[in-house]
Deep mutational scan, measured.
Amino acid sequence: MSIQHFRVALIPFFAAFCLPVFAHPETLVKVKDAEDQLGARVGYIELDLNSGKILESFRPEERFPMMSTFKVLLCGAVLSRVDAGQEQLGRRIHYSQNDLVEYSPVTEKHLTDGMTVRELCSAAITMSDNTAANLLLTTIGGPKELTAFLHNMGDHVTRLDRWEPELNEAIPNDERDTTMPAAMATTLRKLLTGELLTLASRQQLIDWMEADKVAGPLLRSALPAGWFIADKSGAGERGSRGIIAALGPDGKPSRIVVIYTTGSQATMDERNRQIAEIGASLIKHW
């Protein structure tokens, strides 16, 4: 067993022997301040990774656009098919120029040779490549099948209805392509620590998230040296922004954090800054 596999296998073990965790309302004060600064709703939840206990939450059962955070769930569904012998990570998928959609920095470079399922998941999570996500959605049967996968996990809230990039439209009061912070946090925890996926697939999923290259201005910008984070960000229309993450000190994750916002007129930089400040408060009061 590799060191990384050992780390993920012992996530519940280490967490069980940690000192009790206590909620700190100071972080919620910052979440509410972010709402004021952005002029928009902000949803927040913080779960203990081992027990699933909610440590703090704000608007945990209000719907927010998922945006690209759905790509972690998508690759979880792909990995479940791999575990069941219905898919192979090494299978190569070929596609054409007509398949390319807006923001496809990886797939646009491989029109000639195609990409493997493993490479597509890596591109979808680490670079948020939209064509990679659409190609992977095709392998599982489309958005409705991802929703069905989530329902089978016990998540009857999260739903995907459309493809990239239309799913980022974020129309107010439109339930399409949305989740709730509580539902997303619980589902992410199941994917990373539950028995739904094999140990190898859980490790692969967290490795992809740990290698995320496009979430630097968010929670990662607030992390002290030595902290662990595996995350996936999302951005959408109407001032929408979000991030889902597993993080913790001492090089291992111990909490799940989900943050979503929508309806702001603020710039992307300002949305990023507010999420980073929430992260800084979380870490300060850990």
Rank of each mutant, 00 (worst) to 15 (best):
T139V: 12
H285K: 09
S240L: 02
T186G: 14
L135Y: 03
S233P: 05
P20I: 02
Q4H: 14
L19N: 15
V214P: 05
M209A: 03
P65Y: 03
L73H: 07
L100T: 07
T186N: 13
K144Q: 13
I243R: 00
K284L: 13
H110T: 06
H285L: 09
E35K: 03
G248H: 03
G52N: 08
R220K: 06
G226Y: 07
L188E: 01
H24L: 10
D212W: 02
D129E: 01
A245L: 03
R59Y: 04
P12D: 07
Q203D: 11
L100A: 04
V258S: 04
S254V: 12
E164G: 00
P20Y: 03
G90H: 12
M209K: 00
D113Q: 12
L205W: 03
D177F: 01
L205K: 00
N152F: 11
P181M: 02
K252R: 13
G236P: 00
G239C: 03
R202A: 10
E35A: 07
T267A: 13
V21Q: 05
T138W: 10
P224V: 04
L28N: 07
A133P: 02
K144I: 13
H24T: 15
L219S: 04
L73G: 07
E169G: 14
T186K: 13
A280F: 10
L47D: 01
G141T: 05
L218D: 03
V72E: 01
E46D: 07
W227V: 02
Q86C: 10
A235D: 02
I45T: 12
A225D: 14
K252Q: 11
R159H: 12
T179W: 00
T158V: 04
A222Q: 14
S128L: 00
T178M: 03
P105D: 04
L146R: 00
L135R: 04
P224S: 06
M268R: 07
L73W: 03
R162A: 07
W227P: 00
V117G: 02
H156V: 11
V42T: 06
I229R: 01
P143H: 08
M184L: 07
L197S: 05
S254T: 14
Q204W: 06
R273G: 14
F64I: 02
T116M: 06
L55Q: 08
F149Q: 07
D48F: 03
Q274H: 12
R63T: 09
E270N: 08
C121T: 03
Y103W: 15
A77R: 09
Y103P: 07
L19W: 15
R59E: 03
L199C: 15
R159P: 00
A77S: 10
F70A: 10
T27V: 14
A9F: 12
E46T: 13
T126V: 10
G76R: 00
C18S: 11
L218W: 02
E119M: 06
T131V: 05
G141D: 07
D83T: 05
S51Q: 10
L135T: 06
R81D: 05
N272I: 03
L167C: 11
G263D: 09
H151T: 11
L19T: 15
Q203A: 12
R241L: 03
K284W: 10
L191C: 07
C75E: 01
Y95G: 03
Q86E: 12
L282R: 01
G263W: 04
H110D: 05
E237H: 11
L188S: 06
V257N: 01
T131F: 05
R273E: 14
A84L: 13
Q265K: 15
